[in-house]
C-alpha cells in the first residue's frame, strides 16, 4: 500500500469515527424506542412498540402536540409573510433606518433564547397575556423569521435584476412584476424557508419553556417535564417520531427547494 493510500485511509477512518460520534446518540434513541423493557439492553432483546403506544395515548403529549401544531403553523406562516415582504424590501430598496431594522430582525440569531423567552414572558405579563397562544406565536415567529428572510433573500439575490426591468419594459406594472416575475421565481425559496421555520418552531424548547404554561405547553416542553419525572423510554418514542418527521421534511425540502443553497452551504 502506498503512502498516499494509507493517508487517505487514515483520513476517512477519522471522518467515519467523528460521524459515528455525531449520529450514535440518534441511533440509540431509535433503538431504545423499540426496546421491550424499561432497562436499556444492548443488543436489544426484541422489538416492541409499547412506548409508541404510551406516547401517543399520553394526554400531556397529545395536548402538547396539538398546541405545537397551532403555534408552529401560525408562527411559521406569519414569519413567511412578514419575512418575505421584508426580504423583498431589503433586496429592492435602500431607505433610512434599514440597517437598524435589519439588525433588530436578525438579532434573534444571536440573542440567547432564554433571554428572548424571558423578555416575551415579561411582555406577556405586562399585557396580561402570559402563557397565552398570542405571546407564544409571537416569540416563535420572531425566532424563526431570520431563516425565512434569509431563504427568500438568497432566492431574490439570484434573480437577474434586469428581469424586473425587462418586464416593466414590456408593460408590466409594479404589481405584475411582483406577481408574474418575482413571486414565481422566489416561491421555492419561500417554501424552503417556511419548512425550515416550521421545523425550528416545532422543536424549539428554551424560549417555549418561558412563554408557555401547563395548558399551552408545546411538545418539547412536555417532553422536558416528562424526562424530569419519569425514566421510561416513552420520550424515546416521541423523540424517534420527531427525528423521523424532521429528517423527512428536511430531505424533501432539500430535494424540492435546494436546501443547501438556502442554508448557504457551498459544496462546489
Amino acid at each position: 500500500m502506498t503512502f498516499a493510500r494509507l493517508r487517505s485511509l487514515g483520513f476517512w477512518s477519522l471522518v467515519v469515527a467523528i460521524l459515528t460520534y455525531m449520529t450514535l446518540p440518534t441511533l440509540v434513541v431509535l433503538m431504545t424506542s423499540v426496546n421491550p423493557t424499561e432497562i436499556l439492553a444492548f443488543p436489544p432483546e426484541g422489538v416492541s412498540f409499547q412506548w409508541y403506544e404510551k406516547a401517543l395515548t399520553y394526554p400531556d403529549f397529545q395536548r402538547a402536540f396539538k398546541n405545537g401544531l397551532i403555534v408552529t403553523s401560525l408562527a411559521s406562516t406569519l414569519a413567511l409573510i412578514v419575512g418575505s415582504a421584508f426580504a423583498w424590501l431589503v433586496y429592492r430598496y435602500s431607505f433610512r433606518g434599514r440597517g437598524v431594522l435589519e439588525a433588530v430582525l436578525w438579532s434573534p440569531l444571536i440573542i440567547p433564547h432564554f433571554t428572548l423567552g424571558f423578555g416575551f414572558l415579561l411582555l406577556g405579563g405586562a399585557f396580561k397575556l402570559q402563557q397565552g397562544y398570542g405571546m407564544i406565536v409571537l416569540a416563535h415567529m420572531v425566532l424563526v423569521m431570520p431563516f425565512v428572510t434569509r431563504a427568500v433573500y438568497v432566492s431574490l439575490a439570484t434573480i437577474d435584476p434586469n428581469l424586473a426591468r425587462a418586464a416593466a419594459n414590456l408593460g408590466a406594472s409594479p404589481f405584475h412584476v411582483l406577481t408574474r416575475i418575482e413571486l414565481p421565481l422566489v416561491l421555492p425559496g419561500m417554501a424552503g424557508g417556511w419548512l425550515i421555520a416550521a421545523v425550528l418552531s416545532l422543536t424549539e424548547f428554551t424560549a417555549s419553556l418561558y412563554v408557555t404554561g401547563s395548558r399551552t405547553q408545546t411538545l418539547p416542553v412536555a417532553m422536558y417535564n416528562y424526562i424530569r419525572e419519569y425514566a421510561d423510554p416513552t420520550v424515546s418514542a416521541v423523540s424517534a417520531m420527531l427525528i423521523i418527521t424532521t429528517t423527512l421534511i428536511m430531505f424533501i425540502a432539500d430535494r424540492a427547494f435546494g436546501l443547501r443553497r438556502v442554508l448557504a452551504i457551498d459544496t462546489h
Partner: peptide, 26 residues
Amino acid sequence: RSLLVSLSITPLFTGEIVRTFSWMLM
C-alpha cells in the same frame, strides 16, 4: 457529499430536547 451533508446537517433540526435526551441515554 450528499450523505455527508445529510449526516452532519440534519441533527441541527431535531431540536435541543431530543438531542439532549439522546445524550442522557448515551
